[in-house]
């Protein structure tokens, strides 16, 4: 047993390199390297490329060799209606957030508080659609709302006049966004509401607070980080959404991402598309940095210590 402490072994151990406790210090940083490399090559560099392209000659591909503000000037040109696309995207995103807050809150409350053992199953039901491509799901709605589709056919079979025109309107686009982004609002909200200790609510009730007062004074402020993440995530994703307006909205409105896409594809004007993407990225980026800058992610994601 004692040979462990005999000096040759000690020498070997020393030669074997740094020890457990010592390695722990930098272990975290070393584990983060692959992720950082991926983010640098796959996120930062592409964004940088977009920025670089946005300063290139319009309709050209001579990135890094020319510098012009022409693309930005074009966007600001009053003759250009691209600002309408921005307005639609921002407006639809805001409405999506507002509607989803109302739609998701009761469900999030149920998942965090009421459903108990079945909460896991209900969560899976809400997660699963994420694994089905959104255009399949949106197309299902087309089949539902279209003339002669599921809704129309059912109503007519019941002797009613049939479904109103809904498809290919801005409202349908909004509907699609609310539908697609529901999980992105729901799960951060559940995380937020789960952070409110049950005892606090019981204590507030014990001290005479009514249901509305408990909600307003205790539950809402404590769940706010989660709710805000949900709103931010939904907004950011909805501002960049395009499938909804193409599939359900029938291009009745052109959203900003579609303008970017057109510039990249049909128009073959990459510098102009890049300039639009830079502006969109700035909107999204500023909001995100402000939104998640102050978050305590350890607390939200449930670190015990």
């Amino acid at each position: 047993m004692n040979e462990i402490v005999a000096s040759p072994t000690i020498a070997q151990a020393r030669a074997a390199g740094p020890r457990f406790g010592e390695r722990m210090l930098s272990a975290g940083a070393r584990c983060a390297i692959p992720v950082y490399v991926l983010l640098a090559l796959g996120f930062l560099a592409p964004l940088f490329a977009v920025v670089a392209y946005s300063f290139a000659t319009p309709r050209g591909f001579d990135v890094f060799r020319t510098f012009t503000l022409e693309n930005y000037r074009q966007i600001l040109d009053p003759a250009n209606t691209v600002w309408m696309s921005f307005a639609w995207s921002l407006g639809l995103a805001l409405l999506t957030v507002a509607i989803l807050t109302l739609v998701a809150y009761p469900i999030a409350y149920g998942l965090a508080r009421l459903f108990g053992r079945s909460a896991g199953l209900v969560s899976v039901l809400f997660v699963f659609p994420l694994f089905v491509s959104e255009n399949i799901r949106l197309y299902g709605w087309v089949l539902f709302f279209i003339k002669g589709g599921v809704l129309d056919g059912t109503l007519k079979a019941m002797g009613l006049p049939g479904a109103p025109e809904f498809l290919f309107t801005p409202a349908a686009t909004l509907f699609g966004m609310v539908y697609v982004y529901l999980p992105f609002m729901l799960f951060p909200m559940v995380l937020g509401l789960s952070m409110v200790p049950r005892d606090l609510i019981d204590a507030a009730r014990d001290m005479g607070a009514g249901r509305l007062q408990i909600w307003h004074e205790v539950e809402l402020p404590l769940a706010m980080p989660g709710i805000l993440i949900g709103m931010l995530l939904t907004f950011v994703l909805a501002v960049g959404a395009v499938a909804e307006s193409k599939v359900l909205g029938g291009q009745s409105v052109i959203v900003i991402t579609q303008d970017i896409e057109i510039a990249f594809t049909y128009a073959q004007n990459w510098p102009f598309g890049s300039a639009l993407a830079v502006i969109l990225t700035l909107i999204v980026g500023v909001l995100t940095v402000l939104g998640i800058g102050r978050l305590d992610l350890d607390r939200i994601l449930g670190r015990r210590s």
Partner: peptide, 28 residues
Amino acid sequence: WKGRRLYQKLVLLPIFFPQPVLGLALLL
């Protein structure tokens, strides 16, 4: 570790980003 708090936030950035735009940026 020292940079953990920042790292935790940087990891979130691609999630908080519209995928079509990310796709186009990668294309570029």
